[in-house]
Nucleic acid binder design. Structure first.
Lengths: 219, 219
DNA sequence: CAAACAATCCAATAATCGTTAGATTGTAAT
DNA sequence: ATTACAATCTAACGATTATTGGATTGTTTG
């Protein structure tokens, strides 16, 4: 017997996606997964929550078909089920930034340098990076750099920045980025670099924002 | 005293948007509001729910700053607080269609003619409409047509279609549209037109989908 | 086979949400 | 003022959700 399909049945399914992104923890997990495939353990550690809680939230995300899994030995790797999921996260975050004043003031207070990029400055950044005029560094963990990074960027994880300062050319302007507007690693990198006499600033774009802006990502 | 701003505080605010769109009824209200400003009464009637329930859901949407209000006499008119909200609705719906099989099969069962538009076919539809090769009819209530409609479309509400058939040229191909992929008014219009000997089909695009496709909307 | 460990499952609690009913507010018309 | 009516508010319920602790599954390693 065929189930009666009502109009509200359609909205119920779309609401499954809404429910999945209605929890702060799950949004954080999505943002982390937008940086690349990760194990439950890594996700729990990076989101600073219990592994069992992470597992429960990932289950909810999987039931909404926003994430998929792959087993490798003892580990289960989670990934977003498509680039449209990362795009959705960016979209929701942008709507929130546009309409929720509290979020805007919080972002202003947190970020040392707001430096939001318009699409023109994205292009000009790309040009300057290509010509070697500036040095773009990716301060996320190396695994995330490997999974995808901005063009012409080199990997220089925040944790290793201090001991690998020699890798950076002396006179050049440094541009740091990390996971996106909510990530503070690039701020810390800029702070450290300026203390050491470098000319450095950050951009709020992460890989997802860059891609959402229509620009290419390297692997 | 300044509140301590943690990272999770940011995600909590984004989750407010997620919570707002985590209810089927609220999604339906958003879709209705994407057709233009409406009173609570109209929304309750068109969503087929009690006005008090509609009011409660609209309150939730207003607290998430997705809708705004305007008073006019006894009536309170609700509207989306920006075009990005309609765009978000389209985005969430598309993610749901992409990943939730149940939704896709339900849509296939409901719609007589699926006819999803790619961006090329949108352009070619526009060309044919401009040249007068086809007649595009907007079968939504007239108020929604007035609030914004596809280029070259004429208003012919489903409720009046039968008695206004004379308005339609005899030999021409008719293309009907309504509120979007979840709306069945265009299907009913096509059914009626074919019974009367017209060559008619529908497109699933509504105003929001059309705009999300980067094409212009007329007023 | 046993030990170690990643990850999930199960059960229980507290908190939140959706819905309904009844009472109340605000505006316009008589 | 009184009436009518759009809309909101308040209270209450049952249902759902987030979180935690403890037990269990599945895999690798010795």
């Amino acid at each position: 017997m065929k189930p009666t399909i009502t109009k509200s049945y359609l909205y119920e399914h779309v609401a499954r996606i809404g429910k999945a992104i209605s929890s702060p923890k799950r949004l954080e997990l999505i943002e982390l997964l937008a940086q690349g495939e990760k194990t439950v353990e890594t996700l729990a550690e990076q989101a600073r929550i219990d592994m069992r809680l992470a597992s429960a939230h990932l289950r909810a995300l999987r039931e909404a078909r926003l994430v998929e899994t792959r087993r490798e030995g003892k580990f289960i790797h989670y990934r977003l089920s498509g680039p449209d999921v990362a795009q959705l996260w960016v979209n929701v975050r942008e709507v929130a930034e546009e309409h929720l004043v509290e979020l805007r003031v919080a972002l202003d207070q947190m970020a040392a340098s707001p430096d939001a990029l318009s699409s023109e400055s994205r292009e000009s950044l790309l040009t300057k990076a290509r010509s070697g005029d500036i040095v773009v560094i990716d301060v996320r963990p190396e695994a995330e750099y490997v999974a995808g990074h901005l063009p012409f960027a080199r990997s220089l994880p925040l944790a290793e920045l201090e001991k690998r300062l020699a890798d950076l050319p002396a006179g050049k302007e440094i541009v740091a980025y990390c996971r996106g507007p909510f990530c503070l690693m690039s701020d810390e990198a800029v702070k450290l670099l300026r203390q050491r006499g470098y000319t450095a600033h950050k951009i709020t774009d992460g890989v997802s924002e860059w891609r959402a802006g229509g620009l290419p990502i390297e692997n």
